[in-house]
Computed example of a mutant assay.
Amino acid sequence: MKRRTFLQATAGAALLPGALFAQDKYPSKPITWISPYGAGGSADSRARQVGKLMSQILGQPIIIDNKVGAGGNIGTEAIARAKPDGYTIGMGNFAPLAVNHALFKKINFDPVNDIVPIMLIEKGPLILTVRADSPFKTVADIVKAAKASPGKLSYGSGGIGGTHHLSGALFEHVAGIDMIHAPYKSGSAAATDLLGGQVQMMFEQMYVAVPGVQSGKTRAIAVTSKTRSPILPNVPTMAESGFPTFEVLNWQGIVGPKGLPADIVKMLNAAGNKALQDKDLRQKMLDQGNEIAGGTPEQFAALIKAEMPKWGKVVKDAKIEPE
């Protein structure tokens, strides 16, 4: 029998699925991580921090690509439309995955069917803040004043449909009060006018609000998580303040496009969970008042499915429309 040469043997083996996979083991080239928000923001910063650690674990560079606009819809659609080979993943954020389906008349992706959850990174509560010289010291004080003068008190936000706005809309709904929503181009612009007295209150991201509270420029009235924050242990929750169903957490995690193979999802999930064990990263997240998440793809999927109807109802009840 004629003996095959080494090249003939290896060429034949390369046609076998197992051998092909072994030669092209994932990941074998750089991974693109799409962030639906601008450079320097919280989503972008966290993507870079987690992406750097995951690239070390996976042995390939992870390149952050900011695709901004339409409340996060543009970047999220780019994730949904990407080739499901594991080389394009992205940040899945609260607004485009749980709110925008109700807020916008049309979005070009289905948050449930076009997006594959990989791992939840974190949840972040907000703080209801007022100026340090405000007469309001409790949630009850605000509710009493709002009921006495409907449509007079105002709350600032970084724009229509964001967590600042939705927190205020939910507060109005559960408390049965009528306030003025004052949307700004950014959260920092709203915070500036809060200090200037142009608006009376604001639900602000904890990592942004804490410095002002600690410096005495603002007063923290309540936190929107179910439990008190270890950063501000003396500040009650909205639930403790008389509204047991009130909870708002701004969350974000890693997602991929529909059709992403289960073994790649598993590998990325494992790398993401390992990255979250990094001491420096954990300290940064905790210092910002965030809850470190991690866990399985199924747990992240369950969160998205639970949040969608909740915020869809808030948007509908408050008659919120995009700018």
Rank of each mutant, 00 (worst) to 15 (best):
A146P: 00
A98H: 01
G90T: 09
A14H: 04
G242M: 09
Y26K: 02
V143S: 04
R3L: 13
D133S: 01
K67R: 15
R46N: 10
A209Q: 02
G86V: 10
K316M: 12
Q299K: 11
G256V: 06
K258E: 13
A145R: 15
G71W: 12
F300T: 07
P36S: 10
I177H: 13
A145I: 11
G253S: 04
D85N: 03
Q8M: 11
L126Q: 15
L7G: 07
L97S: 05
I74G: 05
K152P: 09
P17H: 03
P117H: 02
S188A: 15
Y37S: 08
I118T: 04
N100A: 06
A275Q: 04
P150M: 07
L7I: 13
K226R: 14
I34E: 02
V265S: 03
T129S: 07
L194E: 01
S149Y: 14
W251N: 04
G196A: 14
V174E: 09
D317C: 01
S225T: 04
W311E: 13
N273T: 12
T88D: 03
P30E: 03
L166M: 06
G51N: 10
I221L: 09
T88R: 02
I89F: 04
N250V: 09
V255R: 01
F94C: 05
K67L: 14
P257I: 04
V265N: 00
F203Q: 00
P96G: 13
P257T: 09
H173G: 08
A293P: 01
K316A: 15
A11R: 14
L15C: 14
Q205Y: 15
I79C: 06
P244N: 05
G86K: 07
E204Q: 08
S157H: 10
L120H: 12
S167T: 15
S28W: 13
W251I: 05
A13T: 10
K29S: 08
G18A: 06
T129G: 07
K274R: 08
S167Q: 03
W33C: 02
L97A: 01
E323Y: 00
P30A: 08
S188K: 14
F6S: 11
V130Y: 08
K83Y: 02
N250G: 12
V255H: 05
V112W: 04
K152T: 14
Q60M: 01
H181E: 14
V199C: 07
P257H: 05
N290I: 05
I160F: 11
Q23D: 06
D24H: 13
I127C: 11
P135L: 11
A146C: 05
K29F: 08
L170Y: 13
Y87P: 01
I34G: 01
N93D: 14
E240H: 05
P111C: 11
L166H: 00
N234E: 13
V50D: 01
R228C: 01
K279G: 11
I160Q: 13
M1K: 12
P322F: 04
G71F: 10
D278K: 06
K2P: 15
Y87Q: 00
D133G: 00
S35P: 04
D141L: 03
G295F: 09
K144Q: 15
F6P: 12
G162I: 08
G196F: 09
D110A: 02
I31P: 01
L126S: 10
F171Y: 00
R3I: 13
